[in-house]
Structures are given as C-alpha cells and as structure tokens.
Computed example of a mutant assay.
Amino acid sequence: MMERPVRKHVRLKHYDYNQNGGYFITICTRGRIPLFREGDRLSAAGMIARACAEEISNHFPEIVVDLYCIMPDHVHFLFMAVGTPYMASVRSNPTISKVVQQYKAAVSRRIGRPVWQRSFYDHIIRNPTDLEETRRYIAQNPLKRMNSNG
C-alpha cells in the first residue's frame, strides 16, 4: 500500500483571514501546465481566467482586486479586504479562502474541467513597503519571464 504524502498547511495558524487588509495570492494550475498563455498572448483559458478575475468584486464587494497577473501556469492576485470588520450583527468579509475557492470554481466551470492545484499560496501584506514591493513584483513578473526566456 502506497503511503499518501502529508500535506503541508500553508495558512497561518492563528490569523483571521476575514479581517481587513492586503493579501498576495498565487494560484497554480494542476501539474503547473502552461494553460493560460500562448507566447505573449492570453490563450482562450487565459481569457476566461481574466474575465473571472474582473468579476471577483462583483461577487464579493468587500474585496478589491488591487492588481492581478495571469502567467502561463499560475495567477497572482493582490486582494484588499475592505469590508466592515466582523460584528455579530453586520455581514463580515468573506475569507480569502472562500474568494479563491469561488474564483477557481468559476474558471474551471467555464473551461469545462478542473484546472487548479489544491490550495493556494498566500502572503499577508504587513506594511506599506510590503504593499509596494508586492505591487512591483506582480507588475514586473511577466516582464521577468519574457526576459529570462530570451
């Protein structure tokens, strides 16, 4: 009998992912298959990923998509949760996991098959310098890739 690998928990244990703040998210395709780009252009699947990214704030008004970048085999997001901090009588922010889950489901549904790895990577934005560095990284990521491929 083959032993299943132990999954690493990638979320911070005691962090409330429904609080206001910035979140740098990376979601990868299953097997890191380069599904979203054909050369320097978005593929049909990439256009679906972009359309779904543009719709996130329609479904989650508490989430602002500050910036995103669609790479061949992954997508980067900078989400800003700007809703009302949790109070029992007021609707709170959705968790970042819920937003990512809905995005991944929408893209897979429109493409017609599952396309994502399980889970996602996150980094909580800690201060204004971190925010600017993250914005710069997301904006420059496609350029770095093009330059490294010749």
Results as ranks from 00 to 15, higher is better:
Met1Ser: 08
Met1Gln: 07
Arg4Ser: 10
Arg4Val: 08
Arg7Gly: 07
His9Tyr: 14
Val10Phe: 09
Val10Pro: 07
Val10Trp: 11
Val10Asp: 09
Lys13Cys: 11
Lys13Ser: 13
Lys13Gly: 12
His14Lys: 14
Tyr15Val: 06
Tyr15Arg: 08
Asp16Cys: 15
Gln19Tyr: 13
Asn20Cys: 11
Asn20Pro: 11
Gly21Ser: 08
Tyr23Cys: 04
Phe24Asp: 05
Ile25Trp: 01
Ile25Tyr: 02
Thr29Gly: 04
Arg30Val: 13
Gly31Trp: 05
Arg32Ile: 05
Arg32Ser: 03
Pro34Ile: 00
Pro34Gly: 01
Phe36Ile: 14
Glu38Phe: 14
Asp40Thr: 12
Ser43Glu: 05
Ala45Gly: 03
Gly46Met: 00
Met47Asp: 14
Met47Phe: 13
Met47Ala: 14
Met47His: 15
Ala49Asp: 07
Cys52Trp: 06
Ala53Cys: 06
Glu54Met: 02
Glu54Ile: 04
Ser57Tyr: 04
His59Pro: 09
His59Leu: 12
Val64Tyr: 14
Asp66His: 09
Asp66Gly: 11
Cys69Trp: 09
Met71Ser: 06
Met71Val: 06
Met71Glu: 05
Met71Asn: 05
Asp73His: 13
Asp73Cys: 11
Val75Gln: 01
Val75Glu: 02
Val75Asp: 02
His76Trp: 05
Leu78Trp: 05
Phe79Leu: 04
Phe79Ala: 01
Met80Cys: 12
Ala81Asp: 10
Val82Lys: 12
Thr84Ala: 12
Pro85Val: 03
Tyr86Ser: 10
Tyr86Arg: 12
Val90His: 07
Pro94Tyr: 02
Thr95Arg: 02
Thr95Cys: 00
Ser97Met: 02
Ser97Asp: 03
Val99Asn: 01
Gln101Tyr: 07
Gln102Glu: 10
Tyr103Pro: 00
Lys104Met: 01
Lys104Glu: 02
Ser108Lys: 06
Arg109Cys: 08
Arg110Ile: 12
Arg110Lys: 14
Arg113Val: 11
Gln117His: 01
Gln117Thr: 01
Arg118Ala: 09
Arg118Pro: 06
Ser119His: 08
Arg126Asn: 09
Asn127His: 13
Asn127Arg: 11
Pro128Cys: 11
Pro128Phe: 10
Thr129His: 14
Asp130Gly: 03
Thr134Pro: 04
Thr134Lys: 01
Arg135Ser: 08
Arg135Gln: 11
Arg136Phe: 10
Arg136Ile: 08
Tyr137Asn: 03
Ala139Gly: 13
Gln140Pro: 13
Leu143Lys: 15
Asn147Cys: 15
Ser148Val: 15
Ser148Gln: 15
Asn149Ser: 15
Asn149Leu: 15
Asn149Gly: 15
